[in-house]
Design a protein around this nucleic acid. Sequence first.
DNA 1: TCTTGCAGGATTGTTCAACAATCCCTACGC
DNA 2: GCGTAGGGATTGTTGAACAATCCTGCAAGA
Lengths: 253, 253
Amino acid sequence: MSTGGAEGTASDTGRQAWLRTVAADVARLDRSSSAERAADILRRSITEGALPPGAQLSEVELTEVLEVSRNTLREAFRLLTHEGLLVYKLHRGVFVPELDEHDVIDLYRLRRVLEVDVVRGLADRDPELPAGRLEPLHDDVEAAEAAASADRWPAVGTANMRFHEHLIGLADSARMDAMTGRLLAELRLLFHVIATPRELHEPYIARNRGLFELLEARKYEQAAADLHQYLLDSEQGILAAFRDKGLRGPVGT
Amino acid sequence: MSTGGAEGTASDTGRQAWLRTVAADVARLDRSSSAERAADILRRSITEGALPPGAQLSEVELTEVLEVSRNTLREAFRLLTHEGLLVYKLHRGVFVPELDEHDVIDLYRLRRVLEVDVVRGLADRDPELPAGRLEPLHDDVEAAEAAASADRWPAVGTANMRFHEHLIGLADSARMDAMTGRLLAELRLLFHVIATPRELHEPYIARNRGLFELLEARKYEQAAADLHQYLLDSEQGILAAFRDKGLRGPVGT
DNA sequence: TCTTGCAGGATTGTTCAACAATCCCTACGC
DNA sequence: GCGTAGGGATTGTTGAACAATCCTGCAAGA
């Protein structure tokens, strides 16, 4: 099976690609479980700020709104719990977590480690990178710029996050993708505590484009260095905005 | 709180340690949900090899053995799924995952990134590291050596893994701990495919001790370099043993 | 021989209703 | 004012039931 490495002709690899596409479609169809659909709705409510940090999610209340049974709802809760978007307190219920400065530092430390390593690692496997691999990054940059022109700053934030998600995706590591998804979900949680999304996101539109161009030019080492500083700056920005908020609304735990 | 670094006297740090112990006990008491207890039992069965990769876990069968309801059991399944110890196939059941070479490479890539970064990062915060912080690492090294003397090689593997878990723990990052727990759980999954645990674990007993001594001597940069090579070697060892197995028992996706 | 189609049984996905356990809040007594 | 008991609400867990899906075996047909 996978013993010989790349032993296929052009038609073989073509067929494999087709099969992979079908497999992806099948997986998407399979994904339709009631619990995951409920989780999707809740996830959006949380990441878009409808459910603020600290809010409790009542079971009976949500069973009526989402039209699922309590057991299914609890399974949805579990899903979101492991994404870091909800926390369980035994016999007390599920809550939207309240993150503090320590969490910001923790999250950014991991982001730096993972993302910088991905970029730096691209140098080693540069030859095997297909041509249009940077396409999604380019799309995200343009989406952010478009959203900025329309003054839609939350959309800018989303596009910027997508950029980083796609950046990690270049590593072709399923586990890195999963971790990044979780980290960014938690980060989104922080954004809604911050009142001024423009100041927060605006500087990074141009920096993302710069990063993209460095990658396109295959200057991976410089891109890694830039990204490192980029993430340090972003961390400081969030910490500053966060502390302003924290003064008049201190969050526990 | 954490502004002044290490400002405590001996009695203060002693009291903090005591408080931390109590908090851990409380957390352990809180943890007593039926689903998590069932998950604990299953987790042990999987990581110790009683449930081989590819095995299916029947719901009705396990409800009788574990004496929990089907709903609770399914919640336990969810828990283990998100640890990577089980995989769901819709309408077909839960299975112990079968990892292949690609997973080994993926897992080790992440281990290298995280662990090396932790060690390298220790240099920056060397002053604030409390005295007995390396104690757990030392215990793990001795445990591994003792188990080796008794020819208990699976125990050596466990001790070695604990060593790396405690190593990551030095970073004081809850999210890194969680990720590492998941990575090592998956790694344990691989170990049971391998027939010769001695050849696999023996070389790393001495290397762990070497690593510990470098840390104790605060030669963090050299420790990081050693650890990097260490993990590359370990990866190659598993890949080799894994491919031998794969010849007579090829595992699909 | 190989493929196709179709029951039948077994397993999973989901819901519902009920009870036990726990937590929060309030009122009571000192 | 403070500790304590009770009531009400919420969560944790169970068992049964039904629908949807998958697997198996067998028969019919090319």
